[in-house]
């Protein structure tokens, strides 16, 4: 709707609270991050060092590894996590018996302290008494008897991502909420045409929540770029930096008081994210943005 002159004041007033808080808690800290990224600040002294932090970071194998791992996380989020969420949302949108219970249950991992969940999954993947190896052993895959899932270079990332799938409920809930706003008329019409359930799901529901699906993909990609807790709690980037991700890397730099370099890593991450965001916008070209 075009904005009328006498309503400009209201418009600004409506944007103001968000903009003020955003400036205070995002723009200012990011400017601070940017400024300190060109220094060797350690919490006490700061000297201007130009691009040294950036150059050093890109020369670190573990930092480059963190970037590639993050991209790996982002791609699996877009190709596996969100589509899975969509399928479950479509299935639950039938509102068959007990769907509310399933919705709640699938959301449960979201509200459990991640420290506790990480501990459980570390125990599931444990080589000595892990549940996964026990199951594999019992179905005849005894090669895996003492396989250390999180401690092995080949399986550590896959195990982490497998574990992260239990959070699929987050995106499912967003898409399910969107199906709630679809008018019943569509389905009534389809019923008259004799459409089956699968046809209704794919030809009515799915297209109508397409924009929400894209929104979820964008959210998932960004969340996985910011991936911290699961990796920090389960492998802390190990073994041999093989599961390192950006935010864990930043956290470590802060812990060892290389605050300037941590800031530089943060700036790189934001820049990378902005590029990903623009790229996604191109690819998805959805109504989300116009």
């Amino acid at each position: 709707m075009k904005i009328k002159k006498d309503e400009v004041g209201w418009l600004l007033l409506f944007i103001a609270p968000t903009l003020i808080l955003f400036t205070l808690f995002f723009i200012l800290p990011i400017l601070f991050l940017l400024a300190s990224s060109f220094t060797n600040w350690d919490g006490i002294d700061a000297e201007f060092v130009g691009f040294e932090n950036y150059i050093k970071l890109f020369n670190k194998k573990s930092f480059v590894r963190a970037i590639t791992n993050n991209l790996y996380w982002c791609i699996t989020a877009a190709l596996i996590t969100v589509p899975l969420g969509l399928i479950i949302a479509l299935l639950l949108s039938h509102r068959s018996r007990g769907w509310k219970v399933f919705r709640t249950v699938l959301f449960v991992p979201q509200v459990v302290s991640s420290a506790a969940i990480a501990m459980l999954w570390a125990a599931v993947f444990n080589a000595e008494y892990g549940l996964l190896n026990y199951i594999l052993d019992n179905i005849g895959l005894s090669d895996y008897k003492n396989h250390n899932w999180l401690g092995n270079v080949r399986t550590a990332n896959a195990a982490l991502i497998g574990f992260s799938l239990c959070y699929v409920g987050y995106f499912m809930v967003i898409m399910l909420a969107k199906t709630a706003s679809i008018s019943e008329d569509y389905y009534d019409a389809a019923k008259i045409d004799g459409a089956s359930q699968i046809q209704k799901d794919f030809y009515i529901t799915a297209p109508l929540i397409k924009s929400t699906f894209f929104l979820c993909i964008i959210l998932a990609v960004i969340f996985n770029l910011r991936q911290f807790e699961y990796v920090y709690l389960m492998t802390a980037g190990g073994p041999a930096n093989k599961t390192q991700v950006l935010v864990v890397y930043i956290w470590n730099e802060l812990t060892v008081q290389r605050l300037g370099r941590g800031s530089a890593a943060g700036v790189i991450m934001i820049a990378l994210g902005a590029m990903l965001l623009l790229l996604l916008r191109r690819i998805l070209k959805s109504e989300t943005y116009n």
Binding site: L19, F22, F26, L33, I270, A274, Y289
Partner: peptide
Amino acid sequence: HIFWWKNVLFLMITAGILVPLNALIIP
């Protein structure tokens, strides 16, 4: 509503999701 800077505003706010909050402890 339609106003010329709304896309800029929206993109800026969206980009806020990217910010690694753990890096902002001191600020």
